[in-house]
Nucleic acid binder design. Structure first.
Lengths: 198, 198
DNA sequence: AACCATTTGCTGTATAAGCAACAAATGGCC
DNA sequence: GGCCATTTGTTGCTTATACAGCAAATGGTT
């Protein structure tokens, strides 16, 4: 599972990934055979099995590396700090993430819409949550555990919505809207006072 | 030297060829190193040497297969027949050839202009001539040996001119103009009568 | 000339990819 | 049900590619 540097592996995986994504568009995920992938990627069928168990495994791995790329581009600890939410840092971070997404829009759109109910969206959310667990400080402005469960869902929903709108909106706009949401949440829904009053 | 079917070889050669052609545009043929080719083609340098001696050999081989493709698309015996020149058949044939050329215009432009004087143009002419020798009937409307030496040069000049003009002109137009040239040649320049009168 | 970095051929070894073959499974279709 | 084509995993074997290392050649600079 370590990172690959062998040129052959890189090129084979590139070919498989692009072939797979274009086949999803052409005939839909369920109708794709390993033969299709091999032919389109111009590789031998047995080569596919060197890397993946089946097309579900392929999708799972692609989702994993896809999320890894997004995660590598973000640093939530910079704006979900101890007592405040820093909008400027968040805007930058979201911009980085969207750049990663824009690089492979078809992949992320498929993951987030998960039209075949393969648990990709959940997998993506788990990956994000895991990263938050590792990088967020113990004390956050909002109840930490709540944050860990909400933020991934919000992030992915935003990205999905952004993709559904053909990546029209700027990260600045999105970040600003989300900032309002986060601030609202910390005031009226999650602040200790209002919580006590329920 | 037999035809390759191994997917690895096909992909490696594809990568080398496209890398090479784009490098020619970028930095000029003479400045290209094998390292450049390997890096751009995303192959190991030693892999290059499995297929080619050096960049000159690469160019020679590319010229050879390039000419083979053109030759495979043409059948001069269909219009340079015993007593006549058949313009319709020639038009079709030229159209086929130009389609092959249009597929890799950078390659053929470089071969035919041969800016580094590597004898590519000559190699191309020789290949064409060899094909004519093999397929033209013994008796032609014009002196056969003369035909063998003129036609390749004319063909290649036309293709070069067509490429220089960004492939604007139709094969029909070119074929018609050439037909006039061929007919003129056979009447006033090469007919036995005028020849005798010199 | 002397120096230096780059390129060049060429080596050995490791390994991914190709390929053919096979039985088992899948999935229409009559 | 039975038939047939396709797909699927998996196998053993071959081969092209990767990769690191090397000495020699090259080419530019001072």
């Amino acid at each position: 599972m370590s990172h690959q540097t062998d040129l052959r592996v890189i090129k084979t995986n590139d070919a498989i990934h692009t072939a797979f994504l274009s086949l999803i568009d052409q005939k839909g995920f369920e109708n794709i055979t390993i033969n299709d992938i091999a032919q389109t990627a111009k590789i031998n069928r047995s080569t596919f099995y060197l890397h993946y168990v089946d097309k579900y495994d392929l999708l799972k791995q692609m989702t994993a590396v896809g999320m890894t790329k997004i995660i590598a581009a973000m640093a939530p600890e910079l704006y979900f700090s101890k007592n405040t939410f820093k909008e400027a840092a968040f805007t930058d971070d979201l911009g980085q993430a969207l750049k990663v997404v824009a690089n492979e829009p078809r992949l992320y759109a498929f993951i987030l819409n998960d039209p075949n109910h393969l648990g990709l969206r959940q997998q993506a959310e788990d990956a994000l949550q895991q990263h938050l667990i590792e990088c967020l400080p113990q004390k956050t402005a909002v109840e930490r555990d709540l944050l860990l469960n909400i933020v991934p869902a919000v992030y992915l929903s935003v990205i999905r919505w952004w993709l559904a709108n053909d990546m029209r909106y700027s990260s600045t706009f999105l970040a600003h809207e989300l900032a309002k949401f986060f601030k609202l949440g910390s005031r009226s829904l999650m602040s200790p006072e209002s919580h006590m009053n329920v």
